[in-house]
């Protein structure tokens, strides 16, 4: 990506860089960047500031990012007055299991679809592509029905198992495995390694960039997942963070305004993905563009 953006400016472009007209353009460019930078980031600044305010202060000065006085009362009440720690634990459990499952199952299937020759492969791949087009929200009632029928409703299994594989992840892994040269695997196969062994100890270690992308997409997806938890559980002890948050705002717990508490809880729920984003940004970008390729 860096190689693409930092192209050396050609002579024509450099001539255009000079002069009052170019300077005006540059100032205009920065003005646009900063203005939209504020639009996109200031809500988070406000969120942080108001999470540390007293309730009257947050109500009176919502626009100001500076708490006056600064208080941790809202944050303390998140832990003392709500089930936040429970939601956090459930979210961690679900996210870790779902991410592990997706990375393993999606790469297995992606590898088979990219490399193994077996009858029905083309049809299977077409089916995976078709499945990717099924809109998630029309599955709310269907998922509820099947979980009820299988006896998985209101259980950790119901929260986790349906999310253990996803078509988009299979697609990403297939694309990646197709870009890896075949020679290495062939060498391993000729030396007598079985299919799974070749996959596990030769191919998978080479797939690190794709595995990181998939891990991040899965983590972010399952950490933020809301509709599925809405139709798979109703026991408050099984609520994940987004479900708990939604309940805090609109459900039975939504009494009064309590903005510092709500904003703080939303902030804490955002932090893990935000940290991942800062560290692994280029994988997020890659993930977004992988999504673009499939269209």
């Amino acid at each position: 990506m860096a190689a693409l953006t930092d192209r050396p400016a050609a002579p024509v472009a450099r001539r255009a860089d000079r002069g009052p007209h170019a300077r005006f353009n540059r100032i205009l460019g920065y003005a646009v960047l900063i203005a939209f930078g504020l639009v996109f980031l200031y809500p988070f600044v406000i969120q942080l500031g108001n999470a540390l305010k007293t309730e009257p202060d947050a109500a009176a000065n919502p626009l100001s990012p500076i708490p006056d006085p600064l208080t941790l009362a809202g944050i303390e009440r998140i832990f003392a007055g709500t089930n936040f720690p429970l939601w956090l634990g459930n979210s961690l459990l679900v996210t870790v299991l779902v991410t592990l499952g997706r990375v393993f199952f999606d790469s297995l299937a992606g590898y088979a679809l990219a490399r193994l020759r077996f009858r029905g492969r083309a049809g299977l791949f077409a089916a995976i592509i078709a499945v990717m087009a099924v809109p998630g929200v029309v599955l709310l009632i269907p998922k509820f029905l099947v979980l009820k029928q299988l006896g998985l409703y209101d259980s950790y299994a119901g929260l986790v198992v349906p999310l253990l594989a996803d078509a988009a992840g299979v697609f990403i892994m297939k694309q990646f495995f197709e870009s890896v040269p075949v020679s290495v695997e062939e060498a391993a196969r000729i030396d007598g390694a079985g299919v799974f062994r070749t996959f596990w100890s030769v191919v998978l270690p080479m797939a690190r960039p794709a595995l990181i992308t998939l891990t991040i997409l899965s983590f972010q997806g399952s950490w933020n997942e809301f509709p599925h938890s809405l139709v798979s559980v109703q026991d408050p002890h099984l609520f994940t963070l987004p479900r708990g948050l939604a309940d805090l705002v609109s459900g039975s717990l939504g009494k009064g305004t309590q903005y510092p508490l709500k904003l703080g809880a939303a902030l804490l729920a955002t932090i893990p993905v935000a940290v991942l984003f800062v560290i692994f940004q280029r994988y997020f970008v890659r993930g977004a563009n992988e999504g673009a390729d499939k269209g």
């Binding site: 963070l241 705002v249 902030l267």
Partner: peptide, 22 residues
């Protein structure tokens, strides 16, 4: 900065916007 809102939780962001549009 422009991309960051896209990766955050829709529920958490909705909470923030409820506050912004109060």
């Amino acid at each position: 900065a422009f991309y960051f809102p896209s990766v955050t939780s829709s529920v958490a962001i909705s909470v923030v916007f409820l506050f912004l549009f109060a």
